[in-house]
Write a protein that binds this DNA or RNA. Sequence first.
RNA 1: GGGGCGGUAGUUAAGCUGGUUAUAACGCCGGCCUGUCACGCCGGAGGCCGCGGGUUCGAGUCCCGUCCGCCCCGCCA
Length: 604
Amino acid sequence: MCGELREEHIGHEVVLFGWVQNRRDHGGCVFIDLRDREGLVQVMFDPSAAQEAFDLANVMRLEWVVGIRGKVRDRGEMRNPRLATGAVEIVVLEATVFNRSETPPFQIEDNTDTNETKRLEYRYLDLRRNKLQRTITARSDLYKATRDYFFEHGFREIETPFLIRNTPGGARNFLVPCRLNPGTFYALAESPQLYKQLLMVSGFDRYFQIVRCFRDEDLRLDRQPEFTQIDVEMSFINQDALFAIIEGLLFRIFREVARIDLLELYPDGRFPRMRFEESMRRFGNDKPDLRFALEHTDLTSLAVEHDGGGIPLFKAITDIFKNGRYRLDLPKEIVKALLIPSSANLSRTEGDKLEKFARSMGSEGLARAKVGEGGVWTQSPFAKNITPEFREAVNQATNARPGDILCFQFGKEAKVNTVMANLRLHLGKILGYIPEIGHEDQWRFLWIVDPPLFEYSEEEGRYVAAHHAFTRPHDDCVELLDKDPGKVLCHRYDLVLNGFEIGGGSIRLHDPEVQAKVFKALNISDEEAQSKFGFLLKALRLGAPPHGGIALGLDRLTMLVSGSESIRDVIAFPKTQQGNELMTGSPDFASPGQLLELKISSLA
RNA sequence: GGGGCGGUAGUUAAGCUGGUUAUAACGCCGGCCUGUCACGCCGGAGGCCGCGGGUUCGAGUCCCGUCCGCCCCGCCA
């Protein structure tokens, strides 16, 4: 192929098919860069070698599809070191034009600056570009590495339905009307969760599937409405053994897809683990990017000790603790600080920009303090009121030195954490601790373990399952299920890579008695449980082995491993942030006839 | 549902405090050129300034609405 020709091919006669990448017309001779999926090679049309081919070359234009027969020649001094095939060129003996091309809407080149709208509209042209050829190929390599690995480890690949019964909870489903049962709908599977558990009950022991999942939720850089998971479930397994299997898979994928040996980073073959609580405290989320430090400092208990430390806004929070109003079933309020080192040399304007950033995250503001000589605070709304004792305690807790700047957030825990977690990432980028895009061969994996089984829903005023209702609680937490549900930890885990959640799963709950307690804590009645999950509950009573599993986000993983900027770069035909597919124009309105046949009407 | 940024030749952008013929680069078309490789040189064509309304003597520019794209919050494994 074009991109594969090297010095060793000199003298050979070759036949090449490809697209015209570039044309340099010298009047007496014409150079063309011919492109195929492997790369470029320079092709020379010389009338003294082949007059007919030369005449054709004079009319050839960009993106024409041509075939040539010619001889590989040494370019000697004229070699082009910037091209992999630069040592050779083809002298054409015969040429054919298979198809002409209209002038393309944008040029097919590596550094295209055409905006993404245009590129998505002409996706098939964008996919001709070297960069996307590489990421889509990486994705293909990743499928192969995954299948090879699991087959070698005794797994079976089993397909599960896409058209399934609508089950409550979790992500919003896409609905598909069922013509044969008017008025009823299938849901598109948001994951094979229930089916893979049932496969364990069936005795399939080790299951995996590379499977499409559908979720009707708002999109992001790393989220598409249809995406692909590497779905895994195993029986007679514990958390540690499952981690080992998945770690092995990732070592394999990085080796075969990116030629990166993770053993250099993780010599014992294992990834580090961190408890959920610790991650929230230090980083404000459950997917910390460990490529840089810049950790949060939780000042809540310190503020309580100092009775607000003279700062009225803090006192409002600490009073909640003092008055005994603080209750487990109320959203917690906390105080957190983030230290920007003096080396960052942050100007006041830049500080104001950070505040704007915090506000865009839903924060009321971003209080700051510049630490001066002797630990005094300046340029701060707190400088006047803060007691010297509290100031000193904060300086010590955050390890602040003169020149550093402290940023504060306080209020509802969830919001403080969101704002501070995003602020940390933002600072990491603007201070150059991590690149704006890409990963520069820094791969920091982390298992997040032992999260709470329930989380309090302010909307619904009750506890809801943080993952799903079939996650196994820690054995020593079972008695807390009715006493203090918020404190129950469970065997759920997320795998994080450079701040992206690339997978998550749990050891499942297969004990009907504990299951009943969980439903009770969730305030789900027997009837409700039966009507919603009856088939699974029945299966769990008919000889269900202990089991657990995980699902890895194949798109995100491919995005990271291929150094892509967005999940759209690793999906051949992705959708925009509003769920539109710009090439074909989906989604589209249904015709009245279609709706009539399905017995549904549209209100739009 | 909310916040931010953006939409001007085929493409990417410039266009200030409203002003006369809307610039540039690449691409495209024509001509010249046998060693270029971002080839070069000469000439040319190309515009519903996203769309709709408003203010004004006059709108790419100001105001309102709307559509589309990107990033984020909410939402989501």
